[in-house]
Computed example of a mutant assay.
Amino acid sequence: MINFRYHLVSLIGVFLALAVGVVLGAGPLQNAISNVGSDEAAVASVADLQEELAAASAEGEAGQELASALAEQVLPGTMSGKNIAVVVLPDATSADVDVATSALEQAGAQVLGPVELTEAFVSQDANTYRETLASPVSSYLAGRPADPSPAAVLATGLVETLTVDSPDAELIGGMLTDEATPLVVALPTELADGLMLVGAGIERPAGVDQTQSGNEAGGDAAVSVAPLTRDGWIALGTAFADASVQAVAVGQAATADQFIAVLREAGSPLATADRGGSPMGALNAVLALASGATGSYGTQSGALEVLAPLP
């Protein structure tokens, strides 16, 4: 015999089922149904973006192929007999260096180096050491920089070790390459007729100190170069521009925190070529060296001309 308790449990079950149905209908299920159209729109939007990206990528590849073909036509013989010291920032990769050195060799230059700068040359952590080292380096400099900061003194010292034949320059080189805390690795034994400063040829610098501003928890934070790293980059640009030989910097200027963009924004007098790590960047860098040009070349932020002058 079915008793009252059985009827009560059945009624509760019916009401629970109705309640669940109402909640789902007004909430998740309703949202899922209403989102069908928007999902289709999102898929179409993503497809459009993918097509645009593919087209831009194809155009970029075509531009690099054109730069490679142009290099084959105009570079050979333009730097024959020249010794070019390739100085590499710590965030540059071996691939970035290979692209630059290949273009120099194509022009007939002898590549000295690569002369690798360590993290200690530009990092925040090594600031105290740089301040300590700058004093003895300054006493051996042939030419004192207008800026007496440690970054400027050390950058000037580096340039003199690469371009000046003197006992004092050799002493500076020994201090910069000290095994305990080296700022520079593998200085060449021959003097340079030209200097090429190679920064990262990637979209986001890696291996250098950076600071973030904005939302701490994964928001749209703005990445910027740490002040001492930025100062180090600018000091290198000034010292290379003041060298007794022709000099150029090559790297990226796609965003404001990248090496070439920082030099350009600071008004550095050094010739610059953007799109480092690519045939176009290498072509402009070598052309700037060969022609003695001092402009800003490429297609990224701050560039004033697409192509450096032909020698």
Rank of each mutant, 00 (worst) to 15 (best):
I260N: 00
V87P: 03
S166L: 06
S291Y: 13
N215R: 15
S149F: 08
A107C: 03
E305K: 04
A41E: 09
E105T: 14
E179G: 07
D91R: 06
G298D: 02
S149Q: 09
S68G: 11
L11V: 15
V86Q: 02
T255V: 12
G143C: 08
G201T: 00
V159N: 00
F259L: 07
D96P: 06
G13M: 11
A239S: 05
N3W: 14
L228M: 12
V46D: 14
G174Y: 02
D168K: 02
E52A: 13
D168A: 12
E190A: 14
V153G: 01
V97M: 06
A180S: 15
G143Q: 13
V14P: 04
G27P: 02
L49C: 11
Q210C: 08
D125M: 11
A226S: 12
E265W: 02
A58E: 12
D125V: 10
G37P: 00
V22L: 13
P76C: 13
I234G: 03
L176W: 01
R264A: 09
G194F: 01
V286I: 14
Q106C: 08
G27S: 11
T163E: 01
L287R: 07
V43R: 12
M280F: 10
M175K: 07
S45G: 07
D91W: 09
T299C: 05
A186K: 08
S166H: 03
E51L: 11
T294E: 04
L117N: 02
L24K: 04
Y129N: 12
V43I: 14
T128E: 13
A222S: 12
V20C: 15
D209I: 07
V43F: 08
A55R: 09
G113F: 00
L16K: 06
D39W: 09
D220E: 14
E305H: 06
E190P: 00
N215S: 11
A142K: 07
A126Y: 02
L53M: 07
A235C: 07
L53S: 09
T255P: 00
V248C: 13
E51P: 05
L183V: 06
G276T: 01
A221C: 05
S244L: 11
A62L: 04
Q73N: 10
S296M: 06
F4G: 00
L183R: 00
D209M: 10
D242H: 03
A285F: 01
A273C: 12
T93K: 05
S138C: 06
V88W: 00
F240K: 01
A85F: 10
M196H: 05
A58Y: 01
E51V: 13
A56M: 07
M79I: 02
S166W: 03
E105N: 08
A17V: 15
V286D: 02
V22A: 15
S139Q: 15
A103G: 08
Q246H: 09
Q212E: 12
Q210D: 04
A26V: 07
A288P: 01
A152P: 01
D48A: 15
S301T: 08
E131C: 07
V223H: 03
E59K: 07
V250Y: 03
I172Q: 01
D168L: 04
